[in-house]
């Protein structure tokens, strides 16, 4: 099939960008979206033009490196699917596809579709961990964890840190990302000890990094390739209230 692409091109952070039109010809429905872009890039290179720069790595939906807003939706139209696992059979011959970078103040564009997501790392640095030393920890079965809690923690821990929640959020908030980590650790007995401090410093860092406030739009959930639930944002809010009133 043949497609019409409008792709955001921007040379560097401090330069202006614009949408540019490209044609993608002879695209097989078996291709992944990124393989389609690979093919467009091969064509551009042969013509002596600069290929479209985009982030990607594992191409199996787990590393969280790929980004891209495709036709107005982070990671494209297929639910719970990263860009790298989106296949061209989800599009039709003759379609026009708009491809833009994830946008937020905290995610400056580095080049074309590549953005700087280091702000998410800094949210984790603020307190997204259990301060366990290497070695000197008790036997793994010393603390029992109800299966249900382990499952809930895992539901939250599935976050791949891609930033689609931020890209989708009308307020550019990283609340779902932060909530996933806060909840994952707050559910577990090992993580409860630092829970109060954690929720405060992580949300504070979130604002400091230039992310917006949560407006309960739930766009994040709809865009999340791992389907992280917004109940975790409620959980974060609960953890915050507990921290404020000194409840354990």
């Amino acid at each position: 099939m043949n497609l019409n692409l409008f792709v955001w091109r921007q040379k560097r952070t401090d330069e202006k960008g614009a949408m540019e039109r490209y044609e993608a010809k002879d695209i097989s429905p078996e291709m992944s979206f990124l393989e389609m872009l690979d093919m467009v890039n091969e064509g551009l290179i042969k013509k002596g033009m600069e290929p479209i720069a985009f982030d990607h790595d594992c191409r199996e939906g787990i590393c969280g490196m790929c980004s891209q807003v495709i036709n107005g939706i982070p990671h494209g139209p297929k639910e719970k699917t990263t860009t790298c696992q989106l296949h061209m059979r989800n599009f039709r011959d003759g379609d026009t596809i708009y491809i833009e970078p994830f946008r937020a103040k905290a995610f400056p564009v580095i080049k074309d579709l590549i953005i700087d997501r280091s702000a998410l790392d800094r949210i984790i640095q603020a307190g997204g961990y259990i301060s366990a030393h290497t070695g000197g920890v008790p036997d793994a079965n010393a603390v029992l964890i109800p299966k249900e809690d382990a499952e809930t923690a895992m539901d939250a821990a599935e976050c791949i840190g891609c930033g689609a929640c931020v890209a989708a959020c009308p307020n550019g908030s990283a609340m779902l990302f932060t909530a996933a980590k806060v909840s994952h650790l707050a559910v577990l007995p090992q993580g409860k000890i630092e829970a109060a401090r954690r929720v405060c410093v992580m949300t504070e860092e979130m604002l400091n990094e230039g992310f917006g406030n949560c407006g309960n739009h739930y766009e994040c959930r709809a865009a999340c390739p791992k389907g992280i639930e917004v109940k975790f944002i409620a959980k974060l809010n609960r953890e915050y209230i507990k921290a404020q009133i000194g409840m354990k």
Partner: peptide
């Protein structure tokens, strides 16, 4: 064996049975 202990201490949500054991 130390690795499993370490990972649990860090909060790695390993699968558990109904009694709460790994």
């Amino acid at each position: 064996n130390n690795i499993i202990d370490q990972c649990v201490a860090q909060g790695v949500p390993f699968a558990r049975d109904y009694a709460g054991y790994l």
